[in-house]
Design a protein around this nucleic acid. Structure first.
Length: 887
RNA sequence: GCCGGAAUGGCGGAACUGGUAGACGCGCCGGACUCAAAAUCCGGUUCCAGCAAUGGAGUGUGGGUUCGAUUCCCUCUUCCGGCACCA
């Protein structure tokens, strides 16, 4: 055994050993022999962006800790890995470097796979998949066609960001402040035909099934429920006459009780009525055009100034018969409800602002606890429920009664009824981009849109295209475009849109069970492995990816491809990895960002940071606060440097130690040194005590459980009894913490164990060490420490386990059991409080009764002193913890 | 703007169901070793007053419930994530 910790050597040897023995291979049920239960532990697969980033290291370390822990607990663990390999960055890289996205992607996969291996994750690489291979995406196409057959896929028009200069569709992230990222041109909204997946057919089920997921974080379930957005309201029709025809403007509202306070109606700029009115009104047409400028992002729309224009058209109030003017409002969303709203300025904040701006009447119709209403300024309580006033026959009714009455009256006039509306919209999957799954459709002049027959799947994406920013290169590929109509046999044109990459990630976790199955999308192995027992990924995926995956699962279940309802039994959402952003402003408002690795801090005497300088020139740099690691802010940290300098175990230990998984993690180099120091100290300690531990191992033939300590250990060797008590107390905590995924305190438990072992022994005992309590306690403690630390830092523990003579593979050793007998104490110390304030301590026998403790407390000197002679009102005893005397 | 989170020493964080606030680590201060430095080891370290014993304050802000609140409720502030074409 080397005297000094050498991570490079240890890690190379451990990884080679695990590779040779196939340690990470998951067993199929027929091979498990003893019938170990399965445990499918899955981390969200990475986009192959080039190199691993810290978020990956964090994600996959968490997954590996959970996987290795469950293996110690006797499970047949599956931990697979693959590549979310289609997507926009590959096209951007192609534009920058003139390299085909395929080539760039496969190169990145090779690099990142190497990096993952160097971190020692117990991944079953035999199941690796990449979504950009035809073997995988053919099943995207196949299921798309099945969904088309049963009406779960359909075609309609959708809105995209259009760059009028590059004449191309842009992704939201390519639109900056309403302008194209490359051209700077003002972006327009444009409607084009797209394919949609009917996720709304499952709205009710997606919402209700959240209650069947106790293993999901509450906050994720809340976010999904809000996203699905079920709301109960009333659909109201406002009749009008247009060109001699009787028509009805439909709106949806959750506040039908305010119907008598409607003073106008507003429609979205895309609403047919707006288009109609604009035809005869140049100013209105200009306004509608103005609304069409800018991005399609909801966040942008929501933060725009609320603007509107009257259409000159009037509708009739369905109850009062009053004429109401119809406005076009830029804040009305075409995608929600009917694309039109009734304006109730008195009781809706947005309508209030709108009415004030354009001088529309405000008519209060709800009385909230008799508070006085004033139209001067909006008050939050204006939107609260109350009792109807100024509402004719509805006066005096509360929310529920008035909604019921109004809905009934509307129904009688055939102008509305109660209705449930969802915020959730169907999933538009068409992308006007090259690097994705081709949509298997053929456009025929005679037959229309014809599905590609199954026996012609997959529609293979040519891999040698290089996008240049001028649109989808597939549109220029005759060999791709030209095809024959499967229906009539005439020449036809292939669809060039590709699928949203969320399609790829919606079912990859199922394919891991049968990645080599070429004849079908899934096979019998899926039944054994799925659903995923533990899913781990970034909190940023809390809504979209997880919702689409849940939807996709329900579709596959409906098509009888799988038998489960929900894909992920338990979910752990890890926090983002952040780092400080440093910059300097040069001339002309230009900002240069500096990587934190190149910045040094200047500290004052107390160790408080006083400033920061660039190491290269020693001059100050400014801090722009903390943000997610990104290329644009140059604040990323390359884990490769960390692994090379300190080794994988240090990288893993630091990632786990520095904060609990669900919390955002702020990067700091300083803590890395601490983790490295601990591992070095650990190694040095093991080296120092190798002889007695190995001797004990030999005596016990490697056995590391069922230690026999004399019953009078506490009396005979109080120090060893104290050591055992501490070791088992820490173990108890660590066992609890690792099961609730709080790995930072598991790491600190390992540190405490080392401190305990280190502090309990001295050289004299080492010299005297033969068989005996000292040696046995040391052997036991070390065996526990190695197993507690192993899931986090497996290489070093693996090496020490065998160097110290413990039997078998640490990989398969069971997680240690707490010896409750070791925790026993004859006397315990209680905290003594007077009126809830700490005033002293009390040592009592662990068997002391409540009455005994009370009497000891009341007569205690500190209680007498702080009680100042006042009578004792009562004493509260919390067993094993404290006693509080109230005076 | 809407939805969801978070806030504790100089720093990362701990405190499980309301019961000793600051575990563990970093940094800093002091000491040992060394010609010296690095590394390592030992001790100290929430703030204020005090030689000390001890006392007071303290978990983003302001309020509430309780014998007792970092923990539960309400208010506000700041930061982070998502908002349907980044993944």
């Amino acid at each position: 055994m080397e005297p000094v910790y050498n991570p490079q050597l240890i890690e190379r040897e451990a990884q080679a050993h695990w590779d040779r023995s196939g340690a990470a291979r998951a067993l199929e049920p027929q091979d498990t022999g003893t019938g170990r239960p399965k445990f499918y532990c899955l981390c969200m697969f990475p986009y192959p962006s080039g190199k691993l980033h810290m978020g990956h290291v964090r994600n996959y370390t968490i997954g590996d800790v959970i996987s290795r822990f469950h293996r110690m607990r006797g499970f047949n663990v599956l931990q697979p890995m693959g590549w979310d390999a289609f997507g926009l960055p590959a096209e951007n890289a192609a534009m920058a470097n003139k390299v085909p996205p395929a080539r760039w992607t496969y190169d990145n996969i090779a690099t990142m796979k190497q990096q993952l291996k160097s971190l020692g994750f117990a991944i079953d690489w035999e199941r690796e998949l990449a979504t950009c291979t035809p073997d995988y995406y053919r099943w995207n196409q196949w299921l798309f066609l099945r969904m088309l057959e049963c009406g779960l896929v359909y075609r309609k028009s959708g809105v995209v960001n259009w760059d009028p200069v590059d004449r191309t569709v842009l992704a939201n992230e390519q639109v900056i402040d309403g302008r194209g990222w490359r051209t700077g041109a003002v972006i327009e909204k444009r409607e084009i035909p797209m394919y949609y997946m009917r996720i709304t057919a499952f709205s009710e089920e997606l919402l209700a099934a959240l209650d069947t997921l106790p293993g999901w974080p509450e906050r994720v379930k809340t976010m999904q429920a809000n996203w699905i957005g079920k709301s109960h309201g009333v659909n109201i029709g406002f009749p009008y006459e247009l060109a001699g025809e009787n028509k009805v403007l439909r709106v949806f509202t959750t506040r039908a009780d305010t119907l008598m306070g409607v003073t106008f109606c507003a429609v979205a700029p895309e609403h047919p009525l707006a288009a109609h009115a604009a035809r005869g009104d140049a100013k209105l047409a200009a306004f509608v055009e103005e609304c069409k400028r800018g991005s399609v992002m909801e966040a942008d729309l929501a933060q725009m100034d609320k603007k509107g224009m009257p259409t000159g058209l009037y509708v009739t109030h369905p109850i009062s018969g009053e004429k109401l003017e119809v406005w076009v409002g830029n804040y009305v969303l075409m995608t929600y409800g009917e694309g039109a709203v009734m304006g109730v300025p008195a009781h809706d904040e947005r309508d209030f602002a709108f009415a004030k701006k354009y001088g529309l009447p405000i008519k209060p119709v709800i009385d909230v606890a008799g508070k006085p209403y004033s139209t001067d300024a909006w008050q939050d309580w204006y939107a609260e429920h109350g009792v109807c006033v100024n509402s004719g026959r509805y006066d005096g009714m509360d929310f529920e009664h008035s909604v019921d009455a109004i809905a009934a009256d509307l129904k009688a006039r055939d102008l509305g009824d109660k209705q449930v509306t969802w915020r959730l919209r169907d999933w538009g999957i068409s992308r006007q981009r090259y690097w994705g799954t081709p949509i298997p459709i053929i456009h025929c002049a005679t037959c229309g849109d014809v599905p590609v027959p199954d026996d012609q799947l997959p529609v293979v994406l040519p891999e040698d295209c290089v996008p240049d920013g001028s649109g989808n290169p597939l549109n220029k590929r005759q060999d791709f475009l030209a095809c024959v109509c499967p229906s009539c046999g005439k020449p036809a044109r292939r669809e060039t849109d590709t699928m949203d990459t969320f399609v790829d990630s919606s079912w990859y976790y199922i394919r891991y069970a049968c990645p080599d199955q070429s004849a079908a999308m899934v096979d019998a192995r899926v039944k054994y492995w799925l659903p995923v027992d533990q899913y781990i990924g970034g909190i940023e995926h809390a809504i979209l990816h997880l919702l689409y995956s849940r939807f996709w699962t329900k579709v596959m279940r409906k098509l009888e491809l799988v038998a489960f309802d929900e894909p992920f039994a338990k979910l752990l959402t890890q926090g983002m990895v952040l780092n400080e952003i440093f910059y300097r402003k040069a001339g002309e408002g230009r900002i240069t960002y500096y990587n934190p690795a190149d910045v040094d801090f200047v500290n004052d005497d107390s160790g408080k940071r006083a400033g920061a300088v660039l190491r290269a020139d020693g001059l100050p740099v400014e801090s722009d606060g903390i943000g997610t690691m990104s290329k644009s802010k140059n604040n990323g940290v390359d884990p490769q440097d960390l692994i090379e300098q300190y080794g994988a175990d240090t990288a893993r230990l630091f990632m786990m130690f520095t904060s609990p998984p669900e919390q955002t993690l702020e990067w700091s180099d300083a803590g890395v040194e601490g983790s490295y120091r601990f591992l070095r100290r650990f190694w040095a300690f093991a080296h120092q005590w190798q002889t007695p531990i190995a001797a004990e191992s030999a005596r016990r033939k490697g056995a590391f459980d069922h230690y026999q300590f004399p019953a009078d250990l506490a009396a005979a060797r109080p120090r060893h009894a104290a050591l055992r008590r501490e070791v088992h107390a820490v173990l108890k905590q660590a066992t609890f913490d690792i099961q609730r995924n709080q790995f930072n305190t598991v790491a600190s438990a390992a540190m405490k164990l080392l401190n305990a072992l280190n502090g309990s022994l001295d050289a004299a005992e080492a010299a005297a060490s033969g068989a005996g309590a000292a040696q046995a306690a040391l052997h036991e403690g070390m065996g526990i420490l190695l197993r507690v630390l192993y899931p986090i830092a497996p290489h070093v523990c693996h090496a020490l386990w065998s160097a110290l003579g413990y039997a078998g593979e640490l990989l398969d050793a069971p997680w240690p059991e707490v010896d409750e007998a070791a925790l026993h104490q004859d006397e315990i110390e209680l905290v003594l409080q007077v009126n809830g304030k700490l005033r002293g301590r009390l040592t009592v026998p662990s068997t002391a009764t409540r009455e005994h403790i009370e009497s000891l407390a009341i007569t205690h000197e500190a209680v007498q002193r702080h009680g100042e002679g006042r009578p004792v009102k009562k004493a509260i005893v919390v067993p094993g913890k404290l006693v509080n005397v109230v005076v």
